[in-house]
Design a protein around this nucleic acid. Structure first.
Lengths: 200, 200
DNA sequence: AAATCAATCAATCATTTGATTGATACAAAG
DNA sequence: CTTTGTATCAATCAAATGATTGATTGATTT
């Protein structure tokens, strides 16, 4: 039997941890971090509670595991497109497209992200993982705006940090709405572009 | 003894409910909705758990009480300034000032609001209170932008709904940062204004 | 074949937690 | 003075919940 393709009840530790993180994420979407129970996760993975604790020692470690799995997703997403040799406006378009792609592929990602950023306020372990992520994303935008100001894409009186906060805040808030829609997101992105480009 | 100034251990039902809501809000700020315990609230108010249940029958009702208390705060805040006979830009400035005032007076308000909006996703009772609040706020901005487009304050190619979502999303996201600062909020508001006004 | 290790489970524990019960204190009304 | 209604508490319950224990199974190593 191929050891890379396990179909028995016995799985490798890494595979289990991935499955556990995935199940936890599903439950967080359904019931929030507040409604996350170790028993529910174990049931969804199809293992015993003790086995769950074997792979992830505590609930705190479990939440950290989810945070790491989120970071991995974002990292993978950030590397999908090349960024070299593009103008500020082109890179803004790329970043907008990336976000649309992300929410289309994983509509629940923003929800989990929001929950974890919320918890980061009182959980140092989670904060250490989530806050750098958010800062990195916003900083990407700030750099784009700085680049675009020097290459003439954007207004010369732009405040790059403020514009970056506005962009990331508006987009994530848009997807946090009661019934997020791709069309509304596109309207927001269009309006953001109109707000920052240099009017000729 | 003045019945309006009770200093005994016995308080009127309304006063108790206010005290309970306040204590609950403090605990939500410290430990999140997830860490909200009826015992902790009772202890902070200085009453027995059974007394707490006498005034607020269940935990669900308690969360709803907090939501109502939030709504009351926002309602009171919204009526502090007259809005008549102002231009779009003037009303935008008013709205910006209102937000700065709110976060200066009650820095934790946005935190509690975020927690409750988050819970609204799975709690119909809370949703019924919180979502209309958020929609009302955003709609205020949309109206301001519509007004300002017709009176010449703002760009004629503005999308009022998108601009409203951007404004509210950016401001609340700004105040959700790890260490929110009034100066960053002002930079964001300045940038928002530059984004939407008509360039002469 | 024996020894070792990784993965798993049934059973159980100790706490936490929302809620209830039955009784008491006090003020106002009759 | 008695009755009634509001506000309060000590004690307790039942369920939920994170975690542990002791043992078993199957693969890998020696």
């Amino acid at each position: 039997m191929n050891p890379d393709q396990p179909n028995s009840k016995r799985e490798s530790g890494d595979d289990r941890r991935v499955a556990i993180a995935l199940a936890a994420r599903q439950i967080i979407v359904e019931k929030g971090l507040e409604g996350l129970r170790t028993r529910d996760i174990a049931a969804r993975v199809g293992i015993n509670i003790a086995t769950l604790h074997y792979h992830v020692p505590s609930k705190e470690a479990l939440v950290a595991l989810v945070a790491e799995s989120l970071r991995d997703d974002f990292k993978a997403q950030a590397l999908r497109h090349s960024r070299v040799g593009k103008s500020g406006l082109e890179r803004l378009h790329l970043e907008f497209a990336d976000f649309r792609e992300t929410v289309a592929d994983m509509p629940d990602l923003i929800i989990i992200l929001t929950e974890l950023v919320e918890r980061a306020r009182r959980d140092a372990t989670v904060a250490e993982i989530m806050l750098p992520m958010r800062d990195f994303w916003r900083n990407q935008f700030a750099e784009i705006f700085r680049l675009g100001m020097s290459d003439g894409s954007f207004r010369s009186d732009l405040d790059p940090e403020a514009a970056a906060l506005i962009s990331t805040g508006a987009m994530s808030d848009c997807w946090r709405q009661s019934n997020p829609s791709l069309s509304m997101l596109e309207r927001v992105q269009t309006e953001l572009e109109r707000s920052f480009i240099r009017k000729s």
